[in-house]
Design a binder for these strands. Sequence first.
DNA 1: CCAATACTTCAGTGATCACTTAAGTGTCTG
DNA 2: CAGACACTTAAGTGATCACTGAAGTATTGG
Lengths: 112, 112
Amino acid sequence: MPADADVLDRTFHALADASRRSIVVRLSEGPASVSALAEPLDMSLSAVVQHIEVLQKSGIVRSEKVGRVRICRLEPAPMGEIEQWIARHRRVWEGRLDQLGDILESTYGRNP
Amino acid sequence: MPADADVLDRTFHALADASRRSIVVRLSEGPASVSALAEPLDMSLSAVVQHIEVLQKSGIVRSEKVGRVRICRLEPAPMGEIEQWIARHRRVWEGRLDQLGDILESTYGRNP
DNA sequence: CCAATACTTCAGTGATCACTTAAGTGTCTG
DNA sequence: CAGACACTTAAGTGATCACTGAAGTATTGG
């Protein structure tokens, strides 16, 4: 198993959870502390820390400690990798199913 | 929350496994039977069937029985949905990356 | 200095995962 | 019609998951 598959495994897995995706959405608005990320989530701080660890292991999130506060922020590279993977295969099956290609285009838009 | 999050959960989860992704890659070249999909994989047929079930529950794969053979094919819609999700947020934090310089500058006391 | 703050670490639990083997059920083919 | 073929279903196993609560460790504001 190459390291590449591992990165895809971890990144897809990290995003396969609504709580973790909500953390990603929150971080896309800017860096945040662990407790700030925990605040809207209905679970223990411990659980949130564990979600952040999953995101960190995938490489989506990086963090640094500033005093007693841990500041988390997004790292776009792994996302780019899975987006590439999808785009690579989507192109093939878009050619196979024209009507769904149209649906995608009308929803997703044509601009870059 | 909504069914939308559920679709993302299932789709990201379905793609978070190298064996399942290899099935997707194989199917992007055209429809295939269960045993054709199983052939390159080093596991029991039963295990492959279970992987296909995961892919079907996510909506990525559809299948129909023709005689004693089950033919599987790709369904692009759920992929489009996660691609949309990624594209939506990637755009935000790519813009954010430009502001990372600003954050560092303000931290180290340069002009905003 | 001391107590609130912001995590951190650890152990445990029930659920889900990724398999396995074994024993089916239909469907062709000779 | 028999037996190979292509799954299908069921039950079980060990690992990982998504939590919890309790007990830490640094930091920091008053």
